[in-house]
Amino acid sequence: MEYVRKDGVEVPKVGVGTWQMETQVAYESVSTALELGYRHVDTAQLYENEAGVGSAIADADVDRSEIFLTTKVNPAHRSVADIVESVRASLNRLEVDQVDLLLIHWPHPLADLPAVIDGLNECVRQGLTRFIGVSNFGVDRLKRAQNLSDVPIFTNQVLFHPWWPQRELLSYCQQEDVILTGYSPLANGGAIDDDLLAEIGRVYDKSGPQVAIRWATQHENVITIPMSTSREHLAENIDVFDFKLTRSEHDQITRPSYLKTGLSMVRGQIGV
């Protein structure tokens, strides 16, 4: 495993995502992931599976201190009091005293950003989370969140894959020492049948999806959270640190495409 080091902690570059997993499925997936060596788990209030994630962590033969656990606040919670109350409920479902990282899930159009950031800060002050961050923020909104926050913004969790490389945002995060956490690194399955990824993978005896994940993790200050319910794929997704893409291969893989990104988002919404 490789790590991103920030604020005195090491965060595994590959974690397990749990989006679209029902509670029992999340329990099984996270249990398998922890057994396979994952030590970074991502969930959210809106996923409605925190109880399954928490039970998996509680039942695992792994100390809680070894696991970097992230959850995300439902943006409907817009006041400091509502945010804190919702996070306490998350901790109860997760069966933990605090999470390692707490994010606002996305910017709510009716939310007052200062109040939201103050709510996240209050969760740090009360010991409910070690670090805070945001998700689905662009550069301008991220800058504003940084200026409003009393504690550093640890990460911005956003869509990040070869067809949506987020170059401007990535550059800003790297300059500001904000971790970019990439979700959907396989473009909701788009990486599975990609000819170029498969061709490069054959050089290293790896699959196309493994090449896509390695592409993500070779970026400075980037971690990624692929999602899978298959033991085989969970094992494959973490087995990406015994090879390194060349600069030329990395550049070939980076192919910004609104079309492919749009198609991948449609696949994700309909569960294809």
Score class of each variant (00 low, 15 high):
residue 122 E to L: 01
residue 185 P to M: 12
residue 272 V to D: 11
residue 21 M to I: 06
residue 10 E to F: 14
residue 269 Q to V: 13
residue 150 D to N: 10
residue 129 T to S: 11
residue 26 A to C: 04
residue 199 E to H: 15
residue 80 V to K: 15
residue 106 W to L: 03
residue 54 G to T: 00
residue 117 I to S: 05
residue 112 D to W: 09
residue 6 K to R: 15
residue 264 S to Q: 05
residue 192 I to K: 14
residue 24 Q to N: 14
residue 133 G to F: 00
residue 67 I to L: 10
residue 271 G to Y: 06
residue 271 G to M: 07
residue 72 K to E: 13
residue 148 L to E: 09
residue 30 V to N: 07
residue 210 Q to P: 07
residue 242 D to T: 06
residue 79 S to E: 14
residue 263 L to K: 12
residue 175 Q to Y: 04
residue 16 V to M: 10
residue 51 A to K: 05
residue 101 L to H: 02
residue 58 A to S: 15
residue 107 P to S: 12
residue 113 L to T: 07
residue 30 V to K: 06
residue 124 V to A: 02
residue 105 H to R: 02
residue 125 R to Y: 01
residue 100 D to Y: 06
residue 122 E to K: 15
residue 62 V to D: 03
residue 148 L to T: 03
residue 24 Q to C: 08
residue 98 Q to T: 04
residue 19 W to T: 04
residue 272 V to Y: 14
residue 202 R to V: 12
residue 103 L to C: 03
residue 50 E to F: 09
residue 265 M to F: 14
residue 78 R to Y: 05
residue 121 N to E: 07
residue 159 L to Y: 09
residue 37 G to Q: 03
residue 15 G to V: 05
residue 3 Y to C: 10
residue 168 E to I: 06
residue 272 V to C: 11
residue 97 D to W: 04
residue 222 V to K: 00
residue 38 Y to C: 00
residue 29 S to Y: 10
residue 220 E to F: 11
residue 211 V to A: 01
residue 169 L to M: 10
residue 99 V to Q: 02
residue 164 W to F: 14
residue 155 T to E: 13
residue 197 L to H: 09
residue 90 S to F: 08
residue 95 E to G: 13
residue 185 P to S: 12
residue 222 V to Q: 05
residue 209 P to Y: 07
residue 227 M to W: 02
residue 175 Q to H: 13
residue 189 G to C: 06
residue 120 L to V: 05
residue 148 L to H: 07
residue 7 D to V: 03
residue 93 R to M: 13
residue 117 I to H: 08
residue 3 Y to N: 12
residue 4 V to D: 07
residue 18 T to Q: 06
residue 174 Q to C: 05
residue 9 V to M: 03
residue 31 S to I: 03
residue 248 S to Q: 14
residue 95 E to Q: 15
residue 132 I to G: 08
residue 11 V to K: 04
residue 257 S to R: 11
residue 65 S to A: 15
residue 1 M to V: 13
residue 149 S to I: 01
residue 234 L to Y: 05
residue 74 N to Y: 12
residue 65 S to V: 11
residue 76 A to C: 11
residue 211 V to H: 04
residue 59 D to Q: 11
residue 21 M to L: 15
residue 177 D to I: 02
residue 119 G to V: 06
residue 229 T to N: 03
residue 174 Q to L: 08
residue 169 L to A: 09
residue 127 G to N: 03
residue 253 I to Q: 00
residue 239 D to Y: 06
residue 262 G to V: 02
